[in-house]
Design a protein around this nucleic acid. Structure first.
Length: 304
DNA sequence: ACCCAGGCAGCTT
DNA sequence: AAGCTGCATGGG
């Protein structure tokens, strides 16, 4: 398309008065603040008491509602499964929390984080995002992801000027030069992102198909990607592929394991894994997210 | 000025 | 199997 026509189109869309289409999801124990700002996703923005983000290439606004959640998008939707699935509306949160071990730290985390859910992200976005996360603070990850979307994402219709683009496709990232990627402030992570994007766009690994594999096999597939180690692999397994036992251990969770569960640094990785698997149960990764967010609140890294 | 951040890879011990 | 280091960049 000619550049001018495109510019014209963008200017038009900025001025358009979007007609919103809404949907009520009937759900209890769902806290948007805790869920969308707990370090599992990095694009949601709190605006006028609601949260705005992009799911399945669609701008979405979420608000609390007496009966649950109210969602608004700016195109007509007949089937809302994509969003219901993303938000994990049908997840049985009572059952999940009931599966957590009973100890004082877990109990405090449950009390503090009531309504915190793990959403089901799109696998490529989740993988690319956590490739950016290594040795970065959450505010910075958000900034990098924003830059990346602005640079390489396809335009979408959206009333939010800061959410005008979808998350970039693997092909778009693979086609970018390392210099262009570094311009998004991702530093040395650029090579990892580019090379992983190449592998994904070559269909050498199909991320959605990993869902059907046993946990260990799915994890090994992820570990074969450049820049993906145990922590990032577990994040992708937990936050996008539905493996609720996957237990990401970052510096914060390490702190929890040491100070709350008396697991000294000297303990071998295998011993730690054995403890985690035996202690936290079927939804270990979910429990991890509660502990992660809880300790960060306690350390004043997150306001409540 | 200094240390650290939702780590990983490659090398050394 | 564990320990050390470089890697970019920005917050506190």
């Amino acid at each position: 398309m000619k550049k001018e026509a495109r510019l014209h189109e963008n200017n038009q869309s900025q001025k358009l008065n979007y007609r919103l289409h809404t949907k009520i999801f009937h759900v209890q124990d769902y806290n948007l603040d805790l869920t969308l700002d707990s370090g599992q996703t990095f694009r949601w923005q709190k605006i006028n008491g609601g949260w705005e983000g992009v799911v399945s290439k669609k701008w979405v606004r979420l608000e609390h509602h007496p009966e649950g959640l109210k969602a608004a998008v700016c195109e007509k939707i007949n089937n809302w499964t994509w969003l219901e699935d993303y938000l994990q509306i049908k997840a049985d949160i009572k059952k999940i929390i009931h599966s957590f071990p009973e100890d004082e730290h877990m109990n405090q985390a449950i009390k503090t984080c009531r309504g915190l859910r793990i959403v089901k992200q799109e696998p490529w976005e989740c993988l690319a995002t956590f490739l950016m996360s290594s040795s970065k603070q959450i505010v910075q990850i958000k900034q990098i992801i924003h830059n990346l979307c602005e640079q390489f994402g396809e335009p979408i219709s959206s009333p939010n000027p800061a959410l005008q683009r979808a998350f970039p496709e693997p092909t778009a990232i693979a086609a970018a030069s390392e210099t262009e990627l570094r311009a998004c402030k991702m530093g040395f992570r650029a090579t990892y992102l580019k090379n992983t994007a190449q592998i994904i766009s070559d269909s050498k690994i199909n991320l959605s198909e990993l869902t059907r594999l046993p946990l260990e096999q799915a994890r090994n597939n992820l570990l074969s990607l450049p820049g993906v180690g145990p922590k990032i692999a577990n994040c992708v397994l937990l936050f996008s592929l539905g493996f609720m036992r996957a237990f990401p251990v970052d510096v914060w969770v390490k702190k929890v394991l040491q100070t709350c569960y008396n697991k000294p640094e000297t303990l071998s990785k295998i011993e730690i894994e054995k403890f985690i698997d035996g202690y936290f149960g079927e939804y270990a990764g979910y429990a991890q997210q509660y502990l992660f967010h809880f300790i960060r609140i306690k350390n004043n890294r997150v306001k409540i």
